[in-house]
Design a protein around this nucleic acid. Structure first.
Lengths: 385, 385
DNA sequence: CACTCTTGGAGAAACGTATCTCCGAAGGCT
DNA sequence: AGCCTTCGGAGATACGTTTCTCCAAGAGTG
């Protein structure tokens, strides 16, 4: 009683605020100390169940909501995870990877929520003062460029960073990526088996990991089988120039009889270009593109697509990040690697630990000359050549 | 000097932490008080430029980053805006409104960022403890159901809420919506002018504002022109049953010669159903659907779509919210309405203030029997009947 | 010279929580 | 009876800012 009176008397000259109830108000109303309230509500300390439930009841009656800001300040945890995506224009996301990003973000949001975290979307191009102003427990970075200043900054701040896309030279805590090499080789083999003699590639001019690895895999494959490379590159972030590039590719004197397009819109663009040149798909031209959109199931003809499984990526990347957040106390360089399932880890001595996720080739009519039945074939294992 | 020494001596028995530099460290290093550091960095107080720049320099050298948590606690502002979307399943977003939501969220993110705020995505179904644990300055709610407990809770907490979609019975601060009535009437008129005699509707079974207003507008139109309503409703959140409903609609004995579909996938579903029944579009069947996807520009034939302009909605809703956040101090029922551009406000005495955004009908071949040229016609003004 | 302003800046009080330390009391053991 | 242990809970401090209040010294003014 006396304690309660003292507690409530804590606010001295300040005029009585009629705002939200604080932990002190609950303590006063319940006739206990704020320690007891905190312990009762958070399930800590040693308290008899009776006290616990009484405090909970009083808190409920007063409509008490703990201040997230105060809790964050005290505990050092905000429950917030940043989702950063590299931007090319002024818009937060790029167009070409739209479906991929949307799906990935969706899965990431879901996974984070399931573990009690929320996601805040932060384009890398944001003004420093906005994402510097947010208490982040960790960050997911999508396809960071080499020497990304954002990643470096976060690293220096001690914020764990997990990247979607194998990082070039960034000090990330961990990363997740598809096995792009295996995926491309799988597609090229698939097209070869379908009868392709000269396989072309529609690729991008940017230097991100996906574009680079895929293109290199293509060139390596060409060297191996002795085919002259036939490819066109265009700025993938510009939605208009994709159609032009598709046209260029089919207008070449050494026109390919099969094409793989690295970006989502390439399928429709190539289809349109093929029509323009009077090429029938799949009879005169085999087609595959990388896409997450299911519109390619209903095009004329349906187009074979490679899915990068953004859902799985998003889920994995978030879980890795939260493992890192909750596993390491702070600052001190604890061995995070131990947290990760070793089966996927690259056999490396040096960090950062990476996880390779499988892709999925969804075979449709556009890449089959004989039986146009729809099947799903798994990608080949990374070991095969 | 003495002051600096005292300041640094502030940390008594605690062992020297090697963590991040705090404002006290900056103050000590610069030989000033923490007040001066705060003022210098935030551009407040009366300080000579020389002191200001010196402090900034020291802060930079020490890699000082203000603690977002502490700032939030002190100022009561987190710079965070919640983006809540009602969910039907376990996934954060619904499928049918996917493109709409993605575009809207993108615009909202962009607009928020431009004003120094970040967006955190919070499905309404999230566990209470996750979004109760986040310091939100305000929330955008997409299409809240009547008596949404989430909205009530936020309202009680004093958090401003702006809804996308006219709220039924929720105490929102403001709302933004399309003029669905005008949009539907415009489409029906458009189809009539193209020669439709019996216009059908593909609608949903849920009770959200969009579905309800659109269906009511359709029924009212039917009454007015003396046509018997021809519609099929299905659970819009289930992607599979849309195709079934489209089929049902075209299988009816009183088969319509024109159809408007309220949801994004209806276009392709109706097109497929039409093929199945040997109906040519637009010759035997006129088609319009509501969609934000540009795949309908390249279908065979291209399909006329109604765009709800999610970019504009997202931008507007965020700007209204931030106006409310920055305009009203806290709790006290200040007249927020004054902040809003009066031109859009509903001529109402009672709250909450709402804004109606125009839609856009993108006319393509599927709704024109004569000249298949692509034009864009604005919706008619809300006044006309 | 006595006085008022202005300038430049220091002190200290919050903000609301979590948690570390410690203490009294009641019971059990020798 | 003295000592140890456990129970139940209170006190105080720290988290890192922002900001309100106030003061000292110099500059101007009569």
């Amino acid at each position: 009683m006396t304690a309660a009176a003292n507690q409530s008397g804590r606010r001295p000259t300040t005029s009585r605020r009629l705002e939200r109830a604080g932990i002190r108000d609950v303590a006063a109303a319940a006739g206990v100390s704020i320690t007891t309230v905190s312990d009762a509500l958070n399930g800590k300390g040693r308290l008899p169940d009776e006290t616990r439930s009484r405090v909970r009841e009083v808190a409920e009656r007063l409509g008490y909501r703990p201040s997230a800001a105060a809790r964050t300040l005290r505990t050092g945890r905000s429950g917030l995870i940043g989702l950063t995506v590299t931007t090319y224009g002024e818009e937060p996301f790029t167009f070409t990877e739209f479906a991929y990003f949307a799906e990935m973000a969706r899965a990431a949001t879901s996974a984070a929520l399931g573990r009690g975290y929320a996601l805040v979307v932060l384009p890398a191009s944001s003004r420093h003062d906005v994402w510097g102003n947010i208490a982040l427990d960790g960050t997911v970075v999508i396809d960071p460029p080499d020497q990304d200043p954002l990643v470096s900054e976060l690293y220096r701040s001690g914020v764990p960073v997990v990247s979607d896309g194998k990082p070039g030279n960034c000090p990330v805590t961990a990363w997740v990526d598809n096995d792009h090499e295996a995926a491309v080789l799988g597609i090229l083999d698939h097209l070869s088996e379908a009868g392709a003699r000269r396989i072309g590639l529609l690729t991008g001019t940017s230097t991100d990991t996906y574009t680079r690895l895929s293109t290199e895999a293509y060139l390596a494959w060409c060297t191996k089988v002795g085919q002259e490379p036939v490819y066109e590159a265009y700025p993938a972030h510009d939605p208009a120039s994709g159609a032009v590039a598709a046209d260029r590719l089919l207008a070449r004197p050494d026109r390919p009889d099969a094409v793989y397009g690295l970006f989502d819109p390439n399928g429709t663009d190539l289809l349109a270009a093929a029509r323009r040149y009077g090429l029938r798909v799949p009879d005169d031209l085999l087609l595959v593109c990388c896409s997450e959109s299911d519109v390619y199931a209903t095009t004329e003809p349906p187009i074979t697509t490679l899915s990068l499984k953004p859902r799985k990526i998003g889920t994995t990347v978030v879980n890795l990040l939260i493992d890192a957040i909750e596993g390491v106390d702070s600052g001190t360089g604890v061995d995070i690697a131990r947290l990760f399932p070793p089966r996927f880890r690259t056999a490396g001595n040096g960090p950062p630990p990476g996880t390779l996720m499988p892709t999925e080739l969804i075979v449709r009519a556009s890449s089959q000359r004989r039986s146009p039945r729809t099947t799903i074939s798994p990608p080949r294992a990374p070991g095969e050549v």
